[in-house]
């Protein structure tokens, strides 16, 4: 029997495994994809420093190799069952059944499917992208930046809160990272296309982290990005492939139309479908926002209602890279406490 089984080989899972190894525990990681690193694989740069995501990813790949962590790739969890003796039996898509003394849910999140907000035209109009699509585009960028219809953009708009704080799409909560991501991406695009006019349509700008507000200020003062307080109502396509946005400017108290070459939708974060599925199998409590409900928001956010089952990272809600890393480290300590207490 191994000490800890970790579900998810993203940065939360790997960081937990590293910290647990430092504390002297044996772990295995189960990852459903063919590589480790989760969503980090898809990002170009990270806020607030514009640091390359692959640098952070390389750190974790190195650690994994150095520490010889056991990772099962292409393996997804079907169910987690707590046994009478307090240990866990984990069934996966592989034939073997894993047994462990504790389990960490580090299964992460999924991005909001922007097709659900059809009025924004995602997958209907060529020049509508999500923030995640843009990251991939930037990452693979060779030469000049062009829109999907192969034009050097003159006007670009970012739409905040797509699938977040939106009752109609069923998500009341704030995904909290899209605001700063939009600012980061807007600056990046302005650097790539200095002549482009860039608009951000927002409800509120929640610049909660270190360096975020400064970045927002820089976006306005140095990069002349225009922030319009108001939501997008609908998008139309002109015959030349450009887009027409109908937006409300709530500060000027009037509706306005904006013509753009490219539209970026800041998609929010949702609980991963797989998390919900195996949470049901082991009686794990989920919050109304469908993420896993921590046992105690203040002094036990790594614990769950099932003893021996821990969380790390975005399985409990939207988190940035650095929040995730910190949360994962704390999870390792919470597990150590658990082992010490149960051994007694």
């Amino acid at each position: 029997m191994i000490d800890v089984l970790i579900i998810g080989g993203g940065i939360a899972g790997i960081e937990t495994a590293c910290s647990l190894q430092d504390l002297g525990y044996e772990t295995i990681i189960v990852e459903k994809e063919k590589t480790i690193g989760g969503h980090l694989n898809d990002w170009d740069t990270l806020f607030p420093t514009h640091r390359s995501a692959s640098e952070v990813l390389a750190h974790y790949t190195d650690e994994t190799r150095k520490r010889a962590l056991t990772i099962y790739l292409n393996t997804y969890v079907i169910s987690v069952k707590k046994q009478d003796d307090g240990t866990f039996e984990v069934h996966t898509s592989r034939d073997v059944v894993f047994r462990s003394k504790a389990v960490v849910v580090a299964s992460g999140y999924k991005l909001f499917n922007a097709e659900r907000k059809e009025e924004y035209g995602y997958k209907i109009y060529d020049n509508v992208l999500t923030s995640a699509d843009l990251e991939v585009k930037l990452k693979d960028l060779k030469g000049e930046f062009k829109t999907p219809t192969d034009k050097v953009p003159e006007r670009i708009a970012f739409i905040h809160c797509v699938g977040s704080r939106d009752e109609k799409s069923g998500n009341h909560y704030c995904s909290k990272l899209c605001c700063v991501t939009a600012v980061k991406q807007a600056i990046h695009l302005k650097q790539l296309c200095p002549k482009a006019e860039i608009f951000c349509c927002y409800m509120d700008l929640r610049m909660y982290g270190p360096g975020f507000e400064e970045m927002y200020r820089e976006a306005q003062e140095k990069y002349h990005i225009q922030f319009i307080r108001g939501r997008l109502s609908e998008v139309g396509e002109n015959s030349n492939g450009t887009l027409q946005l109908k937006v409300e400017d709530t500060l000027a108290a009037r509706p306005c139309k904006i013509q753009v070459d490219m539209l970026v939708l800041m998609v929010g974060m949702e609980s991963a479908k797989s998390t919900e599925l195996f949470a049901q199998s082991c009686g794990l409590k989920c919050a109304p926002n469908r993420f896993i409900q921590p046992l105690d928001h203040h002094i036990g956010s790594n614990l769950t209602n099932v003893e021996g089952l821990f969380t790390a990272g975005t399985s409990i809600g939207p988190m940035s890279v650095f929040d995730t890393v910190n949360h994962a480290k704390a999870t390792a300590f919470a597990i150590r406490d658990y082992f010490i207490n149960t051994a007694r």
């Binding site: 059809e118 009025e119 035209g121 209907i124 109009y125 109502s233 609908e234 998008v235 139309g236 396509e237």
Partner: peptide, 9 residues
């Protein structure tokens, strides 16, 4: 229909 551009298209 303008809010469901898939239908319009």
């Amino acid at each position: 229909t303008h809010m469901t551009p898939g239908i319009k298209k």
